[in-house]
Computed example of a mutant assay.
Amino acid sequence: MATEKPLLENLSLNQITTEYWSLKEAVDGCVKADIPWISLWRHKIDEIGLSESKKIITDSGLKLSSLCRGGMFPAVTAEQRQKSLDDNRRAVEEAAELGTDVLVLVCGSAPDRDIHTSRKWVEEGIEQLVPFAESYGVKLGIEPLHPMYAADRSVVVSLGQANKMAEKYNANQVGVVVDVFHVWWDPDLYNQIERAKGRILGFHVSDWSVPITDTFKARHMMGDGVIEIRRIRQAVEQAGYHGPIEVEIMNQALWDTPGDEVLSLIKERFVEHV
């Protein structure tokens, strides 16, 4: 049975929510706010290097829920696709070194007006990456994005599509990441969550509010929009997922707010709306 409210012990700060904080500032903020999990973005790791990033995480005692991101498989030339695959292998190595077994895949867009071929390239990229990831004990989490991101971020645009891709593999190799912002609109959502039972590798929360004026920074704090967050969370739990719940919000107003205030608001809204 799903609990009525999630425990704060499952709360994870997805680092993009406090984009203007360095990795050290984000980690220190979580420790201060008693947020036990964090999810890292690779551009923040690049700022200080992998070894220093690992030391900061290890010394803090925080648990790492995932690494964002791998993916971006489609490209016009074979050389570019190979570079992407090489970068994905580095991402796998980083995830393993940092101590998480989940690499989130934002699968990539259609670079040449050929969305059908781009989806093939995504499937080929995952197929080539799976043995390498498995050798490091890292699972690949396919995150479907809202269809409005097909042109610049991902041609995988529904949970059904992600499930179909993931089901080609063992659940210990490839799964899905359910992000409420990207899937809330789907009329088949709850059937697809049930279909993903045993294969859900992550759960992300934010909210959808209109008007959307910046597609990348379009998310809002939980409770400020229309998403049935609690219902989706309960469905994900009924499908067997009881892991960390990442608060992932790209929003300029939040980025401009002092990070400690953001974390305080996250905890308040997490209890109230998740």
Score class of each variant (00 low, 15 high):
2 A>I: 15
180 V>P: 00
224 D>Q: 02
155 V>N: 06
270 F>N: 03
124 E>D: 15
248 E>Q: 02
142 I>V: 07
67 L>N: 11
51 S>G: 08
68 C>T: 11
241 Y>R: 07
77 T>G: 04
120 K>C: 09
56 I>W: 12
267 K>W: 02
18 T>L: 07
241 Y>L: 10
66 S>I: 01
231 R>H: 14
209 S>H: 02
78 A>I: 07
136 Y>T: 06
255 W>L: 01
39 S>F: 05
264 S>Y: 10
66 S>C: 13
4 E>W: 05
188 D>G: 09
13 L>I: 12
13 L>S: 07
38 I>V: 12
236 V>W: 03
136 Y>C: 13
58 T>C: 11
15 Q>E: 13
163 N>E: 10
6 P>C: 08
53 S>M: 04
18 T>R: 04
176 V>E: 09
68 C>E: 11
184 W>M: 02
117 T>I: 14
194 E>H: 15
272 E>V: 08
137 G>P: 00
150 A>E: 12
209 S>V: 00
6 P>S: 10
65 S>L: 10
82 Q>Y: 05
191 N>E: 15
153 R>N: 08
94 E>G: 02
186 D>K: 04
181 F>D: 01
84 S>K: 13
209 S>M: 00
39 S>T: 11
15 Q>S: 15
154 S>D: 12
204 H>L: 03
114 D>G: 11
173 Q>V: 01
265 L>N: 02
13 L>Q: 08
161 Q>S: 05
167 E>G: 12
174 V>E: 11
32 K>Q: 11
27 V>N: 14
190 Y>I: 15
153 R>W: 07
131 P>H: 13
125 G>C: 09
91 A>H: 10
210 V>N: 06
32 K>P: 02
145 L>R: 10
143 E>V: 03
202 G>E: 13
50 L>C: 04
172 N>G: 15
139 K>L: 10
178 V>E: 03
134 E>N: 10
24 K>M: 11
70 G>S: 08
11 L>N: 08
55 K>C: 03
